[in-house]
Computed example of a mutant assay.
Amino acid sequence: MANNITPEVLIPLVEQRAVLWDKTLDIYKDKGLKLAAWREICCVFEPNFDKLEEKERKDFATQISTKWTHIRDAFMRSLKNEKEKKRSGADAKTTRPYVYKNQLSFY
């Protein structure tokens, strides 16, 4: 099940659901809306998500949200490193940009 969670698919699904990433929105604080958004994403990756047992649903949802967290954190680290290199005057061309930088431009 979890092997088919690809960043190329996950990132646009999260982007379409601002409740998961846009902290400027009032709805960002609504846990019910966030759970519904994650459920929608789970259903994309696992069409029979609603038919799974509760423990399987929880595990699968955790895998997806963890995958997103890792992607987001790696992106934020790469931005921080870019800023640090610019500030220090180091050659920024020595490192490649984060592989999903363009896809995560909404963040």
Rank of each mutant, 00 (worst) to 15 (best):
C42P: 00
K85N: 09
T95I: 13
F45P: 08
K55F: 12
C43Y: 13
R77A: 11
R77N: 14
D22R: 07
Q103S: 11
I64E: 02
K31A: 10
L13W: 01
W38N: 06
S65G: 03
N81E: 13
N4G: 04
K85W: 09
A61L: 07
L25M: 14
L25G: 03
P7C: 15
T95W: 07
A74V: 00
I71Y: 00
L52C: 01
M1N: 07
Y107R: 11
R96E: 15
V44E: 15
P12I: 14
D73I: 09
K58H: 12
W68I: 00
I11V: 09
L104N: 05
N48S: 12
R39D: 15
S88R: 10
E8G: 01
C42S: 11
F75Y: 15
Q16T: 08
G89P: 04
V9L: 09
F60D: 07
K80I: 06
A37P: 02
T6L: 10
K23V: 13
A18L: 08
V14L: 02
F60M: 03
V14K: 01
K83G: 05
A2I: 11
N81Q: 14
T62G: 06
F75S: 06
A18K: 09
L20Q: 03
R72H: 12
D91Y: 02
T94H: 06
A74L: 08
C43P: 00
M1C: 03
I71G: 00
D59A: 14
F49P: 04
Q16N: 08
A37F: 05
W21H: 08
N48L: 09
V14Q: 00
A61F: 02
K83P: 03
L33W: 02
W68P: 00
R87T: 13
F75T: 02
K93R: 13
T95E: 14
K29T: 13
R17W: 01
K58Q: 11
T62Y: 10
A92G: 00
C43R: 15
V9F: 06
V9C: 01
E82A: 13
E15L: 09
N3T: 14
A90S: 10
Y28H: 09
I27K: 03
K55W: 10
E40D: 15
G89N: 01
W38M: 04
R72E: 14
R57L: 04
D30G: 02
A18V: 11
N3K: 15
D91V: 04
Y98E: 05
T69N: 12
N3V: 13
T69I: 06
P7M: 12
Y28M: 00
L13N: 03
E56N: 08
T66D: 11
H70N: 14
W38E: 00
P12W: 12
L35V: 08
D59K: 04
D73T: 15
F106Q: 01
A37H: 04
A61M: 03
K58N: 13
I71A: 05
K67N: 08
